[in-house]
C-alpha cells in the first residue's frame, strides 16, 4: 500500500454515543491536519433488534458501531479521511470494512502523532508504515482527543434538534 501524502492529510474522528433508550448515534468529523473541519456526517439512531441482540451476543457493540455506523459514515463522506481515528477497540473493527487505516488514539505507544499515539488494527500491521511519514505533518502540539469532544457535542445538538421536531 502506498504511503499517505503529507501536505493534505485528512483525519477522520469517529465516535458514537449510546442512547438512553438503547441504540447508538455515530458521528464522523473529517478535519485537515490542523483540526479545522472539512466535513461532518452523523447517523440517525441505530437500534439493534431483539434477534440481533441475541445472535450477536458480546459482538453486538462492535457490529453496530463498526460495521453499521462506522462503515456507513465513511462511505457517505464526500471528503474521504486518510485515516479514521477512534477512541476504543469497538470502533477499531471498522478496519475490516473500509480501505483506510483505522486507529485508536492513545496516550503512549504506537505511532506518535501530535501529542498522542495511534494503535492500529492487529490484522493490518502495514497501516503503521502507511501513515508514518504523514503523521509528522500534524503539529506536534495537536490534541487528538479534542475533536472527539466536538463530535459528541454535535451529536447531542443533532439529538436535541430531532427531539424538538417530534
Amino acid at each position: 500500500m502506498a504511503a499517505i501524502g503529507t501536505t493534505d492529510l485528512k483525519l477522520g474522528f469517529l465516535t458514537a454515543i449510546e442512547l438512553a433508550g438503547g441504540g447508538y448515534v455515530g458521528g464522523l468529523l473529517v478535519t485537515n491536519r490542523f483540526g479545522r473541519p472539512l466535513e461532518f456526517q452523523c447517523t440517525t439512531p441505530v437500534r439493534p433488534n431483539r434477534t440481533q441482540e441475541i445472535l450477536y451476543g458480546t459482538t453486538l457493540r462492535s457490529f453496530v458501531l463498526g460495521e453499521l455506523i462506522g462503515k456507513t459514515l465513511v462511505e457517505k463522506s464526500a471528503v474521504k479521511p486518510d485515516v479514521v481515528l477512534t477512541e476504543g477497540d469497538d470502533l477499531l473493527e471498522l478496519r475490516s470494512h473500509v480501505a483506510q487505516p483505522v486507529a485508536v488514539v492513545e496516550q503512549n505507544g504506537g505511532l506518535r502523532i501530535g501529542r498522542h499515539s495511534l494503535r492500529f488494527h492487529p490484522s493490518h500491521a502495514d497501516d503503521h508504515s502507511r501513515l508514518a511519514s504523514s503523521a509528522e505533518s500534524v503539529p506536534e502540539q495537536a490534541d487528538l482527543f479534542e475533536p472527539f469532544e466536538r463530535v459528541r457535542e454535535a451529536l447531542h445538538e443533532t439529538m436535541k434538534a430531532s427531539a424538538a421536531r417530534v
Binding site: 466535513e39 456526517q41 452523523c42 447517523t43 455506523i69 456507513t72 457517505k76 464526500a78
Partner: peptide, 19 residues
C-alpha cells in the same frame, strides 16, 4: 430461517465551506 441483513443507516451530513 434468519440471515443477518445489513440494517439501513440514515445519515445527516454537513460540508464546510472552503476557507
Amino acid at each position: 430461517r434468519w440471515r443477518p441483513t445489513r440494517t439501513r443507516v440514515l445519515t445527516v451530513g454537513l460540508t464546510f465551506p472552503a476557507g
